[in-house]
Design a protein around this nucleic acid. Structure first.
Lengths: 231, 231
DNA sequence: ACTCTGCATACTGAATGCAGAATGCGGTCC
DNA sequence: GGACCGCATTCTGCATTCAGTATGCAGAGT
C-alpha cells in the first residue's frame, strides 16, 4: 500500500512571507532605503503582522535588511567597503567550490555548468536577464561542489549583494559588457580537466577582477553624478 | 554641552533571547535532539512567547536548530556528511581569510593572532577550554582579514558545527591531542612573511587534515559503541 | 512671519488569546 | 490479558490587542 505523504515543510506563513519579500528585494521591486511597513505588507499578503515581523527579523539577521533608526526595517544599502567585502567572500567560497567541483563534481553537475555558461554566452537583451544568467552560472559551479553548506553561503551572499546591483542599475552603467565569457570558460576548462587548483584560481581571479572593474565603473559613475544627493 | 546618547541597539527582546539560547547551545547546556518548548523558555527568561519564537525562527534559519516533525524546534544534530561539508566551508572561508591577513593584515591584528596561538599552546586542562582557545586562534586569523563579512560567515559556521563538538564530547574522544600547534605556527609564519598563498594553503590543509583526523577518531569511537542507541 | 508647544496619528515591539494538531493515557470491548 | 478508541493535555502557529514612542501638524505666543 502506498499513500502520498503530506509535504508539510514551509507551510509556515513566516516562510512564505520571507520568500516573497526576499524575491521582491532580489528582483528590485523594493529599492534600498525604502521603508517596509509591517501592516502594509501584512495586508498585501493577507496575513497578520506576526509572520511578517518574523520574516523581517530573519531578513535583518541575514543582512538583507537593516533596522531603521526610528524602528522598523529598510532595505540595506551597501557602501563601497561592504561591496568589496562581499565580493571577497564570494571569491573565497566560490573559488573553493570550483576546486571541489573539479575534484569530485558529478558528470551531470558539470554538464549543468556547461549549459548555464552556454545560456549566458548567448548575450541576453536586458540587464536584469544578464545578471540572472550570470548568477546561474556561478550557482551551477557551487552546486557541483556537492556541498549544501556552500550553496547556503552562496545564496546568502548573493542576496546581500543585491543592493549593489540595484545601485548599479540606478546608474545604468553598462555592467553587461564585462566580458565574463572567457573567464567562465577558463573555469570550465579547468573543471573538465579535473584541475582543482586551476579552477579555484580561475574563479577567484574572475570574481576579484570583476569587482575591480565594477568598482571602477561605479566610481566614475558617481563622479559624474557628483552633487546628486548621496541618499 | 554634552549628553550621553542612549544606546538603543539590541533593546529588542528577541535579540536578547537569541543570545541566550545561542550561548546555551554553544556551551552545551542544551544537547542535540533536545526539544525546545517556547513557553518554558519564555518563563525562564521572563518574556512572552513572541520574542522567543522569533529567536527560535532565526536560529533555525541559521542552521542551529531544526523544526521537529511535530512542530517546534530542537537542536540540530549533524550527520557525518554535514560535518564534512561544514569543515570544507571553513577551509574555504578561513583559508582565504589567512591569505588576506598575510597580504594586508594590520600589525596589531597579527599580534593578536600571535598571542592567541601562544595561549592555545599552553595546553589547557579541559576539553572545553581547548576548544575555545582553538576557536579564538581561528577567529583571530579571520579578524585579521579585516572583512566583517568573513567574520559573520565564520561565526555562523562555527555555531553550526557545535553539534559536532557535543557529539565528540559525548564520546569523550581525545580530540584534544590533535597537535594543532605546528599547523598554527605554519600559518603564522606565512602571515608574518606576507606570503598569502602559503598562508591560505597552510590553513586550508590544517582544517581539512583536522577534519579527517576527527572523522577517523569519531568513526572508531562509533564502531566501539556499536549497538548503543544511535539517537 | 517664525518658533515653540502640545496633541493627534502612525507604527513598532511585545503580550495575550484562540484554534488546530499531536501525544499519551484510561477505559472499553473482545 | 491485549488491542483499540476517544478524550484530556500539551504545545504550536497565527491573530489580535495593548502600550510605548516617534512624527507631523495646528495653534498660540512673540
Amino acid at each position: 500500500m502506498k499513500f502520498e505523504r503530506l509535504e508539510r515543510s514551509s507551510v509556515r506563513l513566516a516562510d512564505f512571507v520571507y520568500e516573497q519579500i526576499f524575491a521582491a528585494v532580489l528582483s528590485g521591486q523594493i529599492s534600498p532605503g525604502e521603508r517596509l511597513v509591517q501592516e502594509v505588507l501584512a495586508d498585501q499578503m493577507d496575513v497578520s503582522r506576526t509572520p511578517v515581523r518574523e520574516a523581517l527579523l530573519r531578513l535583518e539577521s541575514e543582512g538583507i535588511l537593516e533596522s531603521s533608526d526610528r524602528g522598523g526595517f529598510m532595505v540595506r544599502s551597501l557602501d563601497v567597503g561592504e561591496i568589496r567585502g562581499t565580493y571577497e567572500l564570494r571569491a573565497a567560497v566560490e573559488g573553493f567550490a570550483a576546486r571541489l567541483a573539479a575534484e569530485r563534481g558529478r558528470p551531470e553537475s558539470i554538464a549543468h555548468i556547461k549549459s548555464a555558461i552556454a545560456a549566458a554566452d548567448a548575450r541576453p537583451t536586458t540587464l536584469d536577464a544578464g545578471f540572472e544568467l550570470n548568477r546561474l552560472v556561478h550557482r551551477a559551479i557551487v552546486e557541483a561542489a556537492d556541498n549544501p553548506a556552500f550553496l547556503d553561503s552562496f545564496d546568502s551572499v548573493w542576496g546581500r549583494s543585491q543592493s549593489f546591483r540595484m545601485f548599479a542599475k540606478l546608474h545604468e552603467t553598462e555592467l553587461r559588457f564585462l566580458d565574463a565569457e572567457p573567464d567562465h570558460h577558463a573555469v570550465l576548462d579547468a573543471i573538465l580537466a579535473g584541475d582543482g587548483s586551476r579552477a579555484q584560481q580561475a574563479l577567484t581571479d574572475h570574481i576579484l577582477s570583476g569587482l575591480e572593474l565594477q568598482l571602477g565603473v561605479l566610481e566614475s559613475a558617481m563622479a559624474v553624478e557628483a552633487g546628486t544627493d548621496p541618499v
